[in-house]
Every structure is written in C-alpha cells, then in structure tokens.
Design a protein around this nucleic acid. Sequence first.
DNA 1: TTAGTAATTTATAATAGTTCTAAACTAAAT
DNA 2: ATTTAGTTTAGAACTATTATAAATTACTAA
Lengths: 142, 142
Amino acid sequence: MLKNSEFVSKLRNSGLRPTKQRLKICEVLFNRDKTFHFTINDLAKNISENFNEKISLATIYNTVHAFKDKGYLKEITISSDKSYFDTNITKHHHFYDEDTNLLIDCNDNEIGKVNIKNNITGKKISSVEVLVRVASDTQNQS
Amino acid sequence: MLKNSEFVSKLRNSGLRPTKQRLKICEVLFNRDKTFHFTINDLAKNISENFNEKISLATIYNTVHAFKDKGYLKEITISSDKSYFDTNITKHHHFYDEDTNLLIDCNDNEIGKVNIKNNITGKKISSVEVLVRVASDTQNQS
DNA sequence: TTAGTAATTTATAATAGTTCTAAACTAAAT
DNA sequence: ATTTAGTTTAGAACTATTATAAATTACTAA
C-alpha cells in the first residue's frame, strides 16, 4: 500500500506531472497487495464505477502507455484481440485461463528457468516470455 | 511441395469446398519448403502481386480463420497490433527479431523443454508457448 | 503572488483493422 | 438440368485506438 505522496514522487522522478488523473490511476493500479492484471477497458470501468469524477478515455490510454514506457507496467498479449497490462514488472511468466479469461502470474515454483541453448547470432535477448494456456478438462483445446 | 489435388482432398476432408480462391491461398501458404510466417496483410499483398485475379479481403480473412480453426495454421501474437500466422503447426517456440519484425521458429536445439512444475488445479494445459524477443546490441531493450 | 509557459486533459474526429451483410455466384447433390 | 447450400464479394458497419486542437492545469520565475 503506497501513499499519495509516494505516487507524486514516483511520477515526478520519471518526468510526469502528478496530475489528479494520474494520481487516481496510480491509486487504482498500485495501491494493492497483489499484482493487478487489467485491460484498458477494465481500468476505465473500474474508475467510472469507483469515482465520481470521470477520467477521459484518451487520458486513460495516454497514462497507461506513459506508465508502460516508464516501466511501471508490462503488456501481456494473449491474442490479437486480448491485451492485458500487468503491474508486476519483474521477469515472470503466465498461465492464461481460457475459461475465465484470467491471467495468473507464475513464479519459479511453477515454471522452471527457460533454457535458451542458442540465440540468434549478433542479437541480444530482450525478453523471454512463457504463456501457458489452460482450460478445464471438459473444454476443447486449441 | 504439394499438388493441387492434395489441397482439394485436404479441403474436402475438413468440410471446406475446394473453391479456386481457397486453392490459390493453399498454394501461397503451403506450397513451400520452409515454414511461412505471415500477417493477413502480407498474404493479401502476396496474392495481389503474384496473381492476376484478385481475392476479396473478406475471403482472405475468412479463409485464414477457417484454416486456423481446422488446425492448418497457428496464430502467434507478438503485441496488440502484430499478429502472425504460422504454417508450422507442430509444437514449437519462437524468436522475434524486433529490428526486422521477423519471427523465427525454434526447435529443441535452441530452446529446451519448458519445465512446468505445478499447473493450476483442475485445469489441463492446452498450449505452452515461449517467445524470445531479440534485438541488435545497439538498440534499447524493452 | 502573479504572469507566463509548457504539459496535460478533454471531447470529438479520424483512422485502421476486422467483421458483418446481403446479393451474386458456384460447387455439389438430386 | 434443377435445386440447394456453401462461398465470394463489395461495401457498410463496427471496434479499438490514436490524433487533434481548444481549454485547463501545473509549474517556473519574477
């Protein structure tokens, strides 16, 4: 749980003015015990349901992208029409529950280190991401 | 290299009529030695450049999705705005070159088996996909 | 304080990618 | 041949995201 003043300095330190819209978004995203996985739509809905003052959709998009660019959020793409943001910015992998459309963070207890034996010549690895899709037994698999 | 008659039976066997549009698309996609990674846009461009008769964009979308549903293509999503289809439908992983926007198939020589130690209770794993993003040393990483 | 400025927010327009629609056409069955 | 159901097509519709430009706000420096 972070205080408002911590968000103010977090924003200032990354060259973003601590506007009331950004602080509100910080509160929704980062004032949590657990990792938060959300779509832009989820976030917009959450804000409009929980606060009286509305934040323009354009601002929500701008802010989420700014936070992503500053490294406060990670983007996890599931399919061409499902993209989530993740407040957990450490290196980690995901389960994706196809029944509930929920993302679940993995730690090293669930997925072992990926062994990359040979990289492309002359290139540097910028990220390694594993996505494990799961579904209940009775459903058809893809 | 497959013959036209093989595509005809392939389509018939999966309940799709072998229309000339579908056969043309089969030719472009499957009449190759190597795996083909493409976007809908790549495919549409390829067809319009290499054939005189045009195929409607709607048909290209329909056909690619039908082929995906029938298991002849796999979809690989890189980011919310970049989605590729892959003619290699075996279980495999990918490198994604951020400099060239090219996907590269991996085999077991490059990426070892992913060790999933604990799955979500009551769920079955439908797929495991690793995406390794690479870029040249001089570029900034994400 | 108070101007001045630059950044930010906002509603709306524009754009892009994809899906929908319904009429025309085609493959296959009778 | 005729019929039927599946397919293709152009263009409309839709959806998610980005751009625009005016109004507002945060900050700076006098």
